[in-house]
Amino acid sequence: MKNLLDRLRGVERDALKEPRADDAPYYEPQGNEIMLFEAAYRRRLPVMLKGPTGCGKTRFLEYMAHRLSRPLITVACHEDLTSSDLVGRFLLDGDATVWQDGPLTRAVKAGAICYLDEIVEARTDSTVVIHPLTDHRRCLPLEKRGLEIEAHEDFMLVISYNPGYQTVLKDLKPSTKQRFIAIVFDYPDEAIECKVVQTESGLGDSALVARIVAAGRKARALKDHGLQEAASTRALVYAASMVAAGVSPIDACRSAMVDPLTDDRELAEAMLEIARAHLSGS
């Protein structure tokens, strides 16, 4: 199976990812999020995943798509994303024009799970497009073609949203927010985080993993001291992966958890001191 996967890497694939028959992506449940998501899916309610960077929102969704055997289509939102980027547009083809579906339209037609990542980044006009999809109507108007598509029975809309410092001036409109079932994520419990980091990084020494995780969790307390983003679970996985690749634990923490997060010399020194306290002697 792995050989086949390796062959598939580096090959263009459709953005609309059909669920594969093999193992599900690794995901460690933190609470009742699977139950909530499944319930929302049963009633086809749109879902909003809230939580800090790198805590596992996207992985969770991949896992759920696999678990529910639905194709997944992910759109990373940015500030120039217009509604036609989502819905679709006419393209010139010789003398004629061709309509090309946008990712949202494709998902609506195919009954996929459409994941709008970091939705606050998108312009307000594009977020309004999703309104009819998120209530009882469940339809997508294609204004330019004068059409309206009723969503596939299995279609589901998921957005992610990271409340924080960057979004003081940018926030979802309350009218948009309240159309979603919210599932709140945070960095997992220490035990779960250890398990996640160990599994993802493939670092065998579980005591060392526990120390890396403990150091990372301590460093999260620095958030009030000018650190804009705390060391995420992903950063911890990276740190452990670096160790697994032969880097010394302290250097690994520095390269994965300290230097990427801050340019502030003293803050970096403090984080390194925390790493040293936890990891020295290993």
Binding site: A219, A221, L222, H225, L267, E269, A270, E273, I274
Partner: peptide, 8 residues
């Protein structure tokens, strides 16, 4: 540095 670490 001391303050940050003390807080931690």
């Amino acid at each position: 540095l001391l303050q940050i670490l003390l807080a931690v």
